[in-house]
Design a protein around this nucleic acid. Sequence first.
DNA 1: CACCAGGCAGTGC
DNA 2: GCACTGCATGGT
Length: 265
Amino acid sequence: MVKNNQMTERQLSLKDTLPSGQCFRFSEHDGVWTVKAGVGKNLRVLSVSQDDLSPITDDPFWSDFFDLGTDYDSLKAEFSTISPVMAKACEYAPGIRILNQDPWEALCSFVVSQNNNIKRIMGIIDRMCGFYGGGGFPTVESLVDAREDDLRMLGLGFRAPYIVNTARAVYDGSIDLDKLRNIDIDDARAILMKVKGIGPKVADCALLFGCHRLDCFPMDVWMKRVMAEWFPGHDKSIFGPNAGVAQQYLFHYARTSGCFSAKED
DNA sequence: CACCAGGCAGTGC
DNA sequence: GCACTGCATGGT
């Protein structure tokens, strides 16, 4: 039962990764985490506890979902040289990973996220999955012809037409989700932002969490505070080509450590 | 009552 | 280009 610090450091943390605002279909009861991923009939359900991560490590899908192939220790080592507070953010929750979510689910989820809070986002998405997806995340096809009244009933408010616009852009091919993984990042953002309802923040989150574009650096209200207070005069370029990963460590630290007199969930 | 939440579009300048 | 405002909804 010897667990050296290096192994502990290396390990995925469920509690620091799942509730860190990148995915919205999970729950936790008595230390057991339930995670849902996949669109429509491709729904997958994971049940796992921190004590035994074998349901993840033994399954290629979930290993990829939790990004076990990326060397986060190296990334954190680089980030930690940038500044003391960056080092502290890495040390605060070293087990954070950037999830590999389905690109459509990520895009749609972050359209829902705008001017919204995480708890309510999760409720809305859960109701959308029940209403349109039969439990799985709603397919593009199911939302292309969705009625705005239905979406408002589920709590989407002014985002209802944005969801339909997004589904139509994916359906008619003006957004090619697979292409977004490889093309120039500014082109990828521009393609997404042509949709009425997708701005820079939603585009960056979709690209980071759905297309694994680690160069994306979503600037929400928390990250604006982080940059103003801790990196004045700098932008994302100070964090290098994997700035999105640094962003997630900083976001989680800023939001949950209380250093900005943060609220609780 | 006001203000906020992983923002965005529209308007005015 | 930048600053400002309304927007649905639920929580504090």
